[in-house]
């Protein structure tokens, strides 16, 4: 260890793994929540990747989480596809959230056909974002969605029950909505370590 190596040069070579690696590539789609954006290594919803939103129950703000992004996409004229939503998207509320309903598409189906439809939409590359509600989807199905999102360069979102948090997932981002404490917890984010501190979610109700 005779030679003196400058610390910067060592870091630039990227041969040293840093615990808190701050990605310089902040290419994500803004979530509409500055605190969440700052916490995610991509600086927003990861592009061309699957994001998983784990919810403990319905009616805990899971749609409001995506509305700012969906509003921006539809106003830019990009299609947003809801594959097999669990309930009727109530048009006045979606409209009030700023979403241009002309670019909102609903695909009514169920079961494995829903996964197929979501995959087709993602792979086609003509949609801005695809939201799906997979029922009992296994790891393989999620991986297919992730690969489809990558190959179609489309934002993909999967809503799953919070019990799935213990299972590993190929999604680039996993968010848990904790309804009792009104917090958002990042379980996994590609390109960085998941932050330990949750984001208060109730603040932007």
């Amino acid at each position: 260890m005779g030679a003196i190596v400058a610390l910067d040069a060592l870091l630039d070579q990227r041969r040293i793994w840093k615990g808190r690696h701050i990605s310089t590539l902040r290419s994500g789609h803004p979530t509409g929540n500055a605190q969440l954006d700052a916490m995610l290594p991509s600086g927003g919803w990861p592009l061309a990747a699957l994001s998983e939103i784990l919810i403990q129950a319905e009616g805990t703000g899971e749609l409001r989480l995506l509305w700012p992004m969906l509003a921006r996409l539809t106003q830019a004229g990009e299609k947003v596809v809801l594959v097999a939503p669990p309930h009727v998207p109530f048009a006045p509320a979606w409209h009030a959230a700023g979403i241009d309903l002309r670019h909102l598409i609903i695909v009514n189906t169920q079961g494995t056909e829903a996964l197929w439809a979501a995959e087709q939409c993602l792979r086609s590359g003509c949609c801005g974002a695809v939201l799906c509600w997979p029922q009992r989807a296994n790891d393989r199905a999620m991986r297919r969605l992730q690969v489809a999102a990558e190959s179609g360069q489309t934002l993909a979102f999967a809503y799953r029950p919070a019990e799935e948090a213990v299972n590993p997932s190929p999604a680039a981002l996993r968010l848990l909505v904790e309804s009792a404490t009104n917090q958002l917890r990042v379980l996994k984010c590609r390109g960085g370590i998941a932050p330990v501190t949750p984001v208060p979610f109730a603040a932007w109700h």
Partner: peptide
């Protein structure tokens, strides 16, 4: 998009793909 819509309709049924109106 038209082609994707037709593909979805071909497999899922004619009424599977809809829009939403207020």
């Amino acid at each position: 998009w038209e082609q994707l819509r037709e593909r979805l309709r071909a497999r899922l049924g004619d009424n599977a793909v809809t829009g939403l109106q207020q």
